[in-house]
């Protein structure tokens, strides 16, 4: 109580944010009881029928929801891998460019797509990937004689497009942490290697790459929490019924079952499944990152 008296100003400062979090974060958490109900909007949370784990059983029995979990996992896992490998490689290559002007120009260009929304980028991709004379298919045809590809209409090509465009959007931005790590490498290491007559390739192999590994471990571990986050904004703005089989993910599935089919309890259960798996992975991965690299959020 003495603490409250002395620190009342502190509590007062946090109070507004706390109220917002209670209303817009913790109240919805209480709403997950709907996952155990046959929720009907007109009956509300208190009037709907309780059905135990029925919604979860449906989820693991329906072919489409199993497929959706699988799609989500594949797309998210590939995104995690390429979003680690591409910035890692790019940072090392960029580090070799000594002319500051060129290096800065390249950075300005590659960071840009990160700041544009998937609505804008989705609009651009729908335009340039169109089979009806889109820029990319026109180039493929006139340069390589390839028949137009259904990038957004064929399931396998859709997955490829989703992962490639994600990497295209994010690899530049992901480079930043690696560039920061590269700037922290002690120059005397390179000088010593130089004296020993090591080539640049040898220096990269034995100094640069090992120095970046801890950062790569942190980035990679922390992204594990995204293993069921395949990117709602991106998929929602690019997909269509033709590619549901290979491209539908948990978040879009939840949206359609809730908004279009009105199966609210079932949609909540699928969402809850995703939230719990993600939470478990986030907790584990932060523990690993803390143990291995002494990483802390605050």
């Amino acid at each position: 109580m003495r603490g409250l008296k002395r620190n009342w100003q502190f509590h007062l400062m946090i109070l507004p944010s706390l109220l917002f979090l209670i209303v817009f974060a913790y109240l919805p958490m209480a709403g997950i009881v709907m996952a155990f109900q046959d929720f009907k909007p007109w009956d509300g949370v208190f009037g709907s029928e309780w059905i135990g784990l029925e919604n979860f059983r449906t989820m693991f029995e329906r072919d489409d929801s199993i497929q959706v979990i699988w799609n989500t996992f594949i797309i998210a896992a590939l995104k995690i891998i390429f979003n680690l490998v591409a910035p890692f490689t790019f940072a090392i290559l960029l580090n070799e460019i000594r002319k500051a002007f060129i290096s800065r120009t390249i950075q300005t260009l590659v960071y840009l797509p990160h700041f544009l929304s998937w609505v804008i980028l989705g609009g651009i991709l729908l335009n340039i990937l169109s089979t009806d004379g889109g820029l990319v298919n026109r180039m493929l045809t006139s340069w390589f004689g390839i028949e137009p590809i259904f990038f957004l209409g064929d399931g396998n090509w859709f997955r490829f497009t989703v992962i490639a465009s994600e990497v295209w959007k994010e690899f530049g931005y992901g480079t930043i942490v690696f560039l920061a790590a590269l700037a922290n490498i002690n120059p005397s290491l390179y000088e010593a290697a130089e004296v020993d007559g090591a080539t640049r390739w040898k220096q990269t192999l034995h100094i640069t790459i090992p120095s970046l590994i801890p950062m790569a471990i942190v980035v990679g571990t922390l992204s594990l929490g995204n293993i069921l986050n395949a990117g709602f904004d991106q998929i929602f703005n690019l997909y269509n019924p033709l590619v549901y089989e290979k491209g539908d993910i948990l978040d879009t599935f939840v949206y359609r079952t809730a908004i279009e089919d009105g199966k609210f309890g079932f949609a909540t259960a699928v969402g809850l499944f995703k939230s719990i798996v993600s939470m478990a992975l986030i907790v584990i991965s932060y523990r690993i990152a803390y143990k291995v690299a002494n990483y802390r959020v605050f």
């Binding site: 919805p28 709403g31 709907m34 809730a258 609210f264 949609a267 909540t268 939230s275």
Partner: peptide, 11 residues
């Protein structure tokens, strides 16, 4: 690290 999800939020 944990959210209620789309439907509870909408309600």
């Amino acid at each position: 690290i944990f959210q209620g999800g789309l439907v509870p939020f909408y309600v």
